[in-house]
Design a protein around this nucleic acid. Structure first.
Length: 556
DNA sequence: TAAATTGGCGCC
DNA sequence: AAAGGGCGCCAATTTA
C-alpha cells in the first residue's frame, strides 16, 4: 500500500523473489479485486490493509503478514521486544540503526476507521520489503521445526484476517436489552450523574453497618473501617471478606459486583461501543506473549455473564456458541505424547471423569484440581497432594510441564508446539542490551547454586509462567488453526454464516436458523482438523459443547 | 501534571 | 475452598 492509497504488486517465486516486474496500481482495492486467482497475498500489515478491502466487500483467502512474521521470528530468536516493523526488520538486515516501533494506538470505540491509519512503515521501499520477506523465509528454515514455524506464521496471519473480519461483522448487540439489564441490576440513574440508585443504597447499607460513612470502592477506607470494628483484614478481596462475620460484608460484596458492571459495562460503555446493533471490538491476535488474543478497548474478552443477555441473534438467525471441552488438558496430552493422558483425552466425554476413573478412584474433583495444579504450578493445597498420583500415572505429561518450569527457573526460553517463544527472562543478556534494568528483589546467593533445590521467588514465578506458557500457548496454537479451518469451511460452503466472536476456547457464529446444524458440524470438523494439523496424528480428540441459541446467555 | 503502579474483579 | 497461569479495565494513589 502506498501513501496515496494505491499499491505496488509483484508475483513472487517460492524463494520470495519477484517472478515478474513490479506493477504500480493506483487503487489497492481495484488491484486486489481484479486478481481473484491469487492464492496468497504477501503484505506488510493485515491490520492496515485488510479493513479497507472488507469495507468494500473484497475478502481474500489467505495472506502472509510480514510484521506478524517478524514478531514470531524475533521471539523465536530470543529477541522479543525488539522493534518488529518491516522498516526495523530491514534496518537489522543492513546493519543500520533500527527505528523504534510507533507507539501502540489506544482504544478507540468503533475501531474500523482507526485501522486505516498508515504507520511509518508504509514508507519502506517496495524492494526493501521484498528483501525482508525473502530473509524471513530463510529464518523460518533456520528454526528448530521449520514446518511448524511456517504453520505458525500462516495461522497467525489467518488470525489477522479473522480479527479484521470479526470487527467488520460485529457481535449482534441489543442496546435496549442491555439497558434493561442495567436498570434491573443497578436501578435508575440520578440526574446530574453520580452512582445509580442501587449502588447508592448499598453504599448506605455499608456505612450503616460500620456506623460511619465508608466508601466501598476505596479498599483503604474499607480496611480501616474493619480495623476500627476490631477486625483485621489484609485486603478487601471478595473471598477474604466472605470469611468475616460482619453486617457490612454482604452489601459490600454486592456493591463491588455491581460497581464493576457499572464502570466496565454500563451505560457509557454502551454509548461508546455499540452502534447499529453491533459491538465491534478490535481484536489483537497474539496480543499476549502466550499467543492468546487480546482486544483493544471494549473489554470484549471479559463480558460479564449477566450482560450476555444483550447478545441476541437477528430475526430468523441464530447464534451457534461452541466451547472447546477441557482444551488445555487435551493439548497437554497431545504435546507431551503421554500415552495414558492421550488415552484419557481420546474420548469426547468428560475428560476429568475419565481421568478420575484411571487415577483418582473416581474422584472427579480431585482429578481436576490435580491436573490444573500441574498446569498452573500450584504450590500448596490439594492440587499438590494429588500431584504425586498424577505423576505416577502420567509421567510424560507431568515431566513436560516440569521441564518447562525448570527451563524458566534456569532463565531459558520455552516454546509452544508450533514455536511461539516465551520472552527472555528479566535480567538475561537480551534485556540488558535493551536497557531494561535488572530486578534486585532477591539476594544474589539465592540463584547462584549454593543452595541446591532452592530457587528464588523470582525464579519460581518464572517457572510457573513457563510451565503454563507451553500449555496455554500450545492451546492458543490449536485455537488459531481452529479459526483458520472454520473460516475456510464457512467461506467455501456458500453460507451466510459469519464468525462473530472468539474468546480463547470459544467461538460464536451468527447464521440463518436453517444453517445452524451445518455450522455445528463445521465447527466440530474444524476442531478435529486443527488437532491433526497442529499436533499430527494422535488419539486426542477436541470436542465442543455447542448450543444453538437466540441469546448468548442461553448457551450455558 | 502526566505517567506508572496498585488493588480489585470481570473473563478464559 | 483457595490458589496456581494469562489478560483488560477502572479508580485511586504514588512516582517521576
Amino acid at each position: 500500500m502506498t501513501e496515496t492509497g494505491g499499491a505496488l504488486l509483484a508475483p513472487l517465486d517460492p524463494t520470495g523473489l519477484p517472478a515478474a516486474p513490479v506493477v504500480a496500481e493506483p487503487d489497492l482495492v481495484a488491484a486486489v479485486r481484479s486478481r481473484p486467482d491469487v492464492t496468497r497475498w504477501v503484505w506488510r500489515s493485515t491490520a492496515e490493509i485488510y479493513p479497507r478491502l472488507l469495507a468494500v466487500g473484497v475478502p481474500v483467502d489467505r495472506c502472509y503478514d510480514i510484521e506478524v512474521a517478524e514478531s514470531l521470528l524475533l521471539a523465536h530468536e530470543g529477541r522479543l521486544g525488539e522493534p518488529r516493523s518491516a522498516a526495523a526488520a530491514h534496518a537489522r538486515l543492513r546493519g543500520a540503526p533500527v527505528p523504534p516501533d510507533p507507539p501502540a494506538r489506544s482504544a478507540e470505540p468503533g475501531s474500523q476507521s482507526s485501522l486505516f491509519e498508515p504507520s511509518s512503515g508504509t514508507r519502506l521501499p517496495f524492494e526493501d520489503l521484498l528483501q525482508v520477506y525473502a530473509d524471513q523465509l530463510r529464518r523460518h528454515d533456520a528454526t528448530e521445526h521449520p514446518g511448524r514455524m511456517r504453520l505458525l506464521t500462516a495461522a497467525e496471519s489467518a488470525g489477522m484476517l479473522v480479527a479484521a473480519e470479526m470487527n467488520s461483522s460485529g457481535l449482534p448487540w441489543r442496546a435496549d436489552v442491555h439497558r434493561q439489564v442495567l436498570d434491573e441490576l443497578l436501578g435508575e440513574r440520578y440526574a446530574g450523574g453520580g452512582e445509580p440508585r442501587r449502588l447508592a443504597e448499598l453504599a448506605d447499607e455499608v456505612s450503616a453497618a460500620f456506623g460511619r460513612r465508608v466508601r466501598p470502592d476505596l479498599p483503604a477506607d474499607v480496611v480501616k473501617a474493619f480495623a476500627q470494628a476490631g477486625i483485621k483484614v489484609k485486603s478487601t478481596r471478595r473471598w477474604e471478606l466472605e470469611e468475616l462475620d460482619h453486617p457490612a460484608v454482604q452489601p459490600l460484596v454486592q456493591y463491588k459486583k455491581l460497581y464493576r458492571i457499572w464502570t466496565a459495562h454500563g451505560w457509557s460503555w454502551l454509548q461508546d461501543w455499540v452502534r447499529d446493533g453491533r459491538f465491534r471490538p478490535e481484536y489483537l491476535p497474539g496480543g499476549t506473549v502466550s499467543g492468546r488474543w487480546t482486544t483493544n478497548g471494549g473489554g470484549a474478552l471479559q463480558i460479564p455473564k449477566v450482560i450476555r443477555r444483550a447478545v441476541v441473534a437477528d430475526e430468523g438467525w441464530r447464534l451457534v456458541v461452541a466451547d472447546a471441552d477441557q482444551m488445555e488438558p487435551r493439548v497437554l496430552a497431545a504435546i507431551s505424547r503421554d500415552r495414558g493422558l492421550m488415552e484419557v483425552a481420546g474420548h469426547d466425554g468428560d475428560l476429568y471423569t475419565a481421568l478420575s476413573d484411571r487415577a483418582f478412584h473416581g474422584d472427579r474433583d480431585h482429578a481436576k484440581i490435580a491436573l490444573l495444579g500441574a498446569v498452573y504450578g500450584q504450590t500448596s493445597g490439594d492440587g499438590l497432594k494429588n500431584l504425586a498420583a498424577l505423576r505416577r500415572r502420567f509421567p510424560l505429561a507431568v515431566a513436560y510441564v516440569d521441564d518447562a518450569a525448570k527451563a524458566g527457573e534456569d532463565g531459558r526460553l520455552v516454546r509452544t508446539w508450533l514455536g511461539r517463544t516465551s520472552p527472555p527472562a528479566v535480567g538475561s543478556g537480551a534485556d540488558e542490551e535493551a536497557g531494561i534494568p535488572q530486578e534486585s528483589a532477591d539476594p544474589p546467593l539465592a540463584d547462584s547454586g549454593f543452595t541446591p533445590g532452592y530457587a528464588s521467588s523470582n525464579a519460581r514465578a518464572r517457572g510457573r509462567f513457563t510451565r503454563n506458557f507451553v500449555v496455554q500457548g500450545s492451546a492458543a496454537d490449536w485455537a488459531l488453526l481452529l479459526l483458520a479451518a472454520l473460516r475456510r469451511s464457512l467461506g467455501s460452503a456458500g453460507l451466510r454464516a459469519e464468525l462473530v466472536f472468539f474468546q480463547h476456547d470459544e467461538v460464536i457464529v451468527h447464521c440463518p436458523q436453517e444453517e445452524a446444524e451445518t455450522v455445528v458440524e463445521a465447527i466440530r470438523a474444524a476442531g478435529e482438523l486443527a488437532g491433526r494439523t497442529a499436533f499430527g496424528e494422535t488419539p486426542v480428540r477436541f470436542p465442543f459443547t455447542t448450543a444453538v441459541v437466540e441469546r448468548y446467555s442461553d448457551a450455558k
